[in-house]
């Protein structure tokens, strides 16, 4: 039992914790997290390269700011220690738990990407067109059957659609994963294809076919060879 008027153990711990230099520690952790995201290559999984420099510059600025704050004497003041604890914990979590999101899940929640403004792959030979080039080409022509029989060599991840079909897809990102939208091609997989789990990255070699379906002409890649590949360091188009 505490004596009347004596502080409870919890309040002693709380006031001891509140006296730590939490704010500079929070900035330090935040700066380390930003730099770690860049050094470890995680930024490439999360945002367009245009913003990488901004993140690195901010990481350096945060480190400099925190070191400056740690070296100057601190006047007695009310510090936002709860906010700082949240920032420290979040920063540590970001470092410890890398982003392993499901691109398929993201893609299922998004409308198809609009491809205006992207460099066109019209002039490229068929085997040099990537998935986005193909989709742009097929969307842009009123006669997709003209491409029937052309060789296809594309990479992407396996997207399981809402109807259970397995398409080949890539994400298009303008800013960060929050704005990612999918670009996808229907694929007729060969019988001897390796087991295709959701989000598995594969390289598909085959030929373009255009099926006449009740919904209109439907381009589909007839895959002859499917090879599982590791996830690329930059897994989306920008």
């Amino acid at each position: 039992m505490n004596q009347p008027g004596s502080p409870s153990p919890w309040s002693v711990v709380r006031s001891a914790v509140a006296r730590w230099r939490w704010p500079p520690l929070a900035l330090l952790c935040c700066g380390v997290t930003l730099m770690h995201s860049w050094v470890s290559g995680r930024l490439q999984l999360l945002m367009a390269p245009t913003f990488h420099g901004l993140v690195v510059g901010s990481g350096l600025a945060l480190l400099a700011w925190s070191v400056t704050a740690l070296t100057v004497s601190q006047p007695r003041r009310s510090i936002p220690w709860r906010a700082a604890v949240l920032v420290v914990c979040t920063s540590l979590l970001i470092v410890l738990a890398p982003p392993r999101g499901s691109f398929s899940m993201l893609a299922r929640h998004r409308p198809p990407a609009q491809l205006d403004g992207l460099a066109a792959g019209f002039a490229l030979p068929p085997e040099q067109r990537d998935l986005v080039d193909w989709v742009r080409l097929l969307r842009g022509t009123p006669q997709p059957q003209l491409f029937r029989g052309e060789p296809v060599q594309v990479k992407g991840f396996v997207l399981v659609t809402a109807t259970g079909e397995r398409h080949l897809a890539q994400l298009l990102v303008r800013c960060c994963l929050a704005d990612a939208t999918p670009v996808q091609l229907a694929v007729q997989w060969p019988a001897d294809a390796p087991p295709l789990r959701q989000d598995q990255w594969v390289r598909v070699e085959g030929e373009m076919e255009v099926l006449d379906t009740p919904d209109g002409l439907q381009p589909v890649v007839i895959a002859h060879d499917v090879t599982a590949i590791p996830k690329p360091p930059q897994p989306f188009r920008t």
Partner: peptide, 23 residues
């Protein structure tokens, strides 16, 4: 899957917004 995808989107949003907040 939901949780890990949310976590990835969270990281993307936070790391992208932090420089602007700092500025």
């Amino acid at each position: 899957d939901h949780l890990s995808t949310s976590w990835s989107v969270f990281q993307a949003l936070f790391l992208e917004a932090m420089p602007f907040l700092l500025i």
